[in-house]
Simulated assay, not measured.
Amino acid sequence: MSFRDAFQSYIDHPEKHSDLVLYHDEHVIIIRDLFPKSVRHYLVIPRSTALTHVHPLDVFNRNYKDFTGEELYELIGTYVEKAKEMIIEDIDKSLGNHPNNKLKLAEFKNKFIKSGIHSIPSLRNLHIHVITQDFFSTRMKHKKHYNSFTTKFFVEFDKLNPNYNAGYCKLRSGTSDKYDDYDSDSVHSSESDEDVMVIKNVRNEAVLNDIIKSTPLQCTICGATFGNKFQKLKEHMEEEFTKKYSSFEGYDVNKLIKSQI
């Protein structure tokens, strides 16, 4: 089996991979990323054979035998939220479950955890990233790694909602029975006739590769820019990491990162 199919064994036999599989049921598995790019980096991976090899920008924009694209999006959304809750629970545990952290952790969940997909996935099985925005990891090795999560190359889960996709709206209304003709080559536009926002995502691989290669490095927390100086960014992100997490009661960097090593 090729590396690009690395998730298949986890999908087929999650019970054999308790070291990485944090949750599973008939619909999904939730695992730790094999090469985490942040202190907490999980993946939500649908198990259905009908979904697993569909491109992530297309998967919610079609109907299936057992559910519509909207129903699928809502279903997977519940697991994305579950993964966020699991991240918060894990961080809370590492901090000693201090009651004083509850409100801060709720804000942390809403503002400091993002979910979404890579426009050019490195692995074949459909997967949704759920990741804290500290990018404090030994696996964060170069500019492309960082920019793949902090530029338009990374499409947030909210922007995959089929109700904001022109092609799916036509499919739902019965004016089209095709999903392969979706126009997904620009970023955002609005259908002025009905004042409906339509989200269109970059699909051109040359453009996407240029985005992660050429976009200047920028801190996700304070917005400081570092050009191509990746090591400077890493040093800065370590400082931001300490500021962010040391505000919690029970902060201990070794306990916080232990499960991610």
Rank of each mutant, 00 (worst) to 15 (best):
T52P: 00
L126T: 06
F108Q: 09
D134L: 08
V187Y: 09
K114V: 15
N101Y: 03
F67D: 04
F248P: 03
R124Q: 14
F67H: 12
V198A: 07
V39Y: 06
L95S: 04
D183K: 14
A83P: 04
E107T: 10
E156F: 04
F149V: 04
F67W: 08
V39F: 08
L103G: 07
N209K: 15
L75G: 05
Y64I: 06
I212P: 09
S48Q: 07
L105G: 09
N161R: 06
T151F: 08
V187I: 06
Q260F: 01
G96H: 04
K37C: 10
N97C: 15
E194N: 14
I29W: 00
T242K: 14
K141G: 04
H41W: 05
P162F: 02
K144C: 03
N163A: 02
F153K: 08
E191T: 01
K243S: 13
N110A: 15
K109G: 03
S38W: 09
L103C: 04
V54D: 06
T68M: 05
Q133R: 13
V44Q: 00
Y251G: 01
K65G: 01
N204G: 09
H24I: 01
R4V: 13
D185N: 14
L34H: 13
I88S: 06
V54K: 12
I113T: 10
A166C: 01
I76S: 00
R139M: 14
I31L: 06
N147V: 07
K93D: 08
I29M: 00
K82S: 00
D33C: 04
D25T: 00
H17P: 06
D158H: 10
V54S: 05
F35D: 12
K229P: 05
P56C: 09
I131P: 04
N163S: 07
Q231C: 11
P121D: 11
F226I: 10
C219V: 12
T138H: 11
H27Y: 12
H24F: 15
H13I: 07
H145E: 03
F153R: 07
I11L: 15
Y179G: 01
Y182W: 12
H188N: 12
V196G: 02
N228S: 15
T150V: 06
K200Q: 15
I11Q: 03
M140A: 10
V207C: 06
K200N: 14
L34D: 05
M86H: 00
E81P: 02
K159A: 02
N254D: 13
E238T: 13
K82V: 00
H55R: 03
H98N: 15
F3Y: 14
P56E: 04
K178P: 00
N165F: 01
K84C: 08
E70D: 13
T215G: 07
K243H: 11
N209D: 13
I113D: 06
I117Q: 07
L22D: 00
I221C: 12
F241H: 14
L34S: 13
S176W: 04
R172D: 12
D183E: 14
Q8P: 01
S137I: 05
G167K: 13
A206T: 15
I211H: 08
I29C: 00
V21N: 01
G223I: 09
K144H: 05
N147Y: 08
V155K: 10
K104S: 12
D158C: 03
F136P: 03
G227K: 11
L57M: 10
C222W: 11
D33K: 05
I199K: 09
S246D: 06
R62C: 02
Y42T: 01
H41G: 08
K234Y: 04
